[in-house]
Design a protein around this nucleic acid. Sequence first.
DNA 1: TGGTTCACG
DNA 2: GACGTACGTGAACCAG
Length: 915
Amino acid sequence: MTTNHLYLVDGSGYIFRAYHRLPPLTNRHGVPAGAVYGFTTMLWKLVDDLHKADGPTHLAVIFDASSKTFRNDLYDKYKAHRPPPPEDLVPQFPLIRDATRAFSVPCIEQPGLEADDIIACYAKAALAKGWQVTIVSSDKDLMQLIEPGLDMLDTMNNRRLGADYVVEKFGVPPAQLGEVLALMGDSVDNVPGVPGIGPKTASQLIQQFGDVEAVLANAETITKPKLRQSLIDHAANARLSRELVRLVCDQPLPEPLDDLALKGLPPEPLRAFLEEQGFRSLLLKVGGPSAEPVSAPAAIAEEAEPPFVHKEYETVVTEEALDRWIADGFAASMIAVDTETDHIDCMRARLVGVSLATAPGKACYIPVGHTGDGLLSETPAQLPLDLVLTKLKPLLEDPATLKIGQNLKYDLVMLRRNGVDVAPYDDTMLLSYDLDAGLTAHGMDDLAMRHLDHACIEFKTVCGTGKNQISFDKVPLDRATEYAAEDADVTLRLWRKLKPRLSPEAATRVYELVDRPLVPVVAEMERAGVHVDREELARLSGEFAGEIARLEAEIHALAGSPFTIGSPKQLGEILFDRLGLKGGRKGKTGVYSTDVNELERLAGDGAEIAAKVLEWRQLAKLKSTYTDALQAQINPATNRVHTSFSLAVAQTGRLSSTDPNLQNIPIRTAIGRRIRDAFVAAPGKLILSADYSQIELRLAAHMAEVPALRDAFARGEDIHNLTAMELFGEVNRETRGRAKTINFAILYGISSWGLAGRLGVDRIEAQAMIDRYFDRFPGINRYIAETLTKVREQGYVTTLFGRKTHLPGIRSSKQGERQAAERQAINAPIQGTSADIIKRAMVRMGPALAEAGLADVTMLLQVHDELVFELPESDVPAASAVIRRVMETAAEPAIRLSVPLGVEIGTGHSWGAAH
DNA sequence: TGGTTCACG
DNA sequence: GACGTACGTGAACCAG
């Protein structure tokens, strides 16, 4: 029997080295994957060497957990100057974990320990059992571990490193290497060392005296005066450095040694991964492309899945059961998670339970906050919330275990409020959004029906509806378990269907670089909330109420009798039937149109009642939708308003905002703007608003390659003036207004009818303007034609980042639907690219502000082309510079635009004042 | 529940 | 010649 041989791969070290050594490859759909490719090849080689002489029998890949380690407690500046990893490396981290999983090799990470320490612990444990150990790394710190039975392997030049190498390079054997490393310090990790001592001097001193303490003890005897003084002055730093470079090797092993046994190349998961990445040369080695090339990810999806059996879900009420599920989660290295609460608003909700799924059909529910209904049922026996959270936290935060959620933002907010972070993660709702936008809604019930042919237990059958509805904490545990565990089970099954489609369908880029990383960013914005001046809102409500009452009386007098002004039906009958004003019927319902255009027309003709109804409507709208509603939306616990941003609703990639909608707070009229003035900064702080200027027109100029528009933006000219000049030969208020309308018409997918209606000209005249526009701005025409060709062929259009909007209406037999789809096809790439860009700015904003030391700057809101922050007054200059830079460069480096992105920044005590 | 209106980008 | 009256959202209100 041969000796066991454990290979420990320093995953984090390898990633950075591969990133810098290998060309910046991208995988088949444009996501940076050079390091992933290098890593995959290296892992392949190792696994393939199973049972060769000197090959591995046991293998694990060790990563750094991103959290702080004990070394930061020793020295707060440890690794403090590390720049964040390069942007095109960041999306490779999850892929590298996917690769490791595809080989069925364990990923090991442990918060509080660096990869080096975990490696040291495993190495010592294996040596103690008489195993051989090879550390796959060329990190000098790890060379301290070299001893008989343990060597290192540098896979990039296929070199084995032993004690000879250490002696040759550092002049001392591995056992003394830590002493040398301590004296010389390390500028990258910010290990201070002793100033003036580099590798040569450090080596000499240790060779002469033996260790750091001995060197310090003999400092007085050193002849070189500068060296002597430096050692005396920096003795404390030398001792600190000695502790910083010392590897910890006495910690418990996260996974037992025997679990690292290598089983060889697992063809199916590996094939799926390679096809997903498009690593064709490796794919050939695993046995060529599978019979059905693009369905290869079906390796996962086509596995027969068990039916849904609700009675088999487990209700977890003992510590033993909880521990068992958590161990299963670690073992599976992925787990679906769902939280149940007593409220749809995650800022008001209490945690009621958590469900987990580790495999299709294998799911549980852990109740923590059920109360019984107070009448028929008592509070059921459950594990205490704190215990469950304490036990779940290591699993949910474990960097080697993938957490899968459906609309994970909700659970993220809930869990963060309870002191738990969740990472790494996937979100099935966002997977669906990035794959199937325009084809389906992305709620769990929709997705379960579509992909699993399964009807989920409806919330209302568990909790009822209307005034009989109960909150989830009142649901009996058996019913709650069936519902909640099913959610986790469905989520896991959906992930298995959707995740493998990502790469073949070219959605990885937008998922990994835009939507997935946005989840925790938006979760934090929602948690932050925004401060509103309650008294001011109440004052406005009162003021509006008075005006509304006054107008109501006047309107009723003009009409000759009271009626419901808010009823379009009654209003239309009053205006057109009783008062005999000119107007027409409309729509299938047969009610008169009384919208703002119609009323303005009537008012222009001298109808006093129409003017008053308009005024009444405005005030009624402002009062009911804003001043009254916002007061009611103030969270009593935080005294702030917390909107909910929907990440998977808008067809184009935009966010939307609900409960309350803070993306449609008035600004266009003076009276409405007073509501915006009630959005105020907390005491001592200011609101900062940063707007992209004309971003959609700029993107249109880039995407359609319109030289005149590109040049005008490059020179910083007013684009509507330019358009007016080109179309009408002169610039004045009137021509500029028309030009602006036409510019918007272009973005929205122009039709001569629509433009004619907007401009109040006839169809022929509108068409002439469009023709002239196409003539003056060549490129627009071509963009429209190419976009329409593409959408007709493929059924979808894409943004610059590859986000798809499917437009099935393009093949409708109804002409109206077809034309609507054509207009959407023109608009979606432009609106969607703008959404991609601001999302990237949001993702980068936190790290950029943190790097600049601006920890007190909080991002509060996104309004499509605007980001709103709250910050200390003294941070305004520095924060403005960071925010401007992040927003203006948000497309880079993935996309290089031919137009600059302009950002306008304003500050004030209120949102209104910041504009 | 669907239709209408109107707040925003 | 008919078709249709700009893209994307969410909330309040009325009426059936």
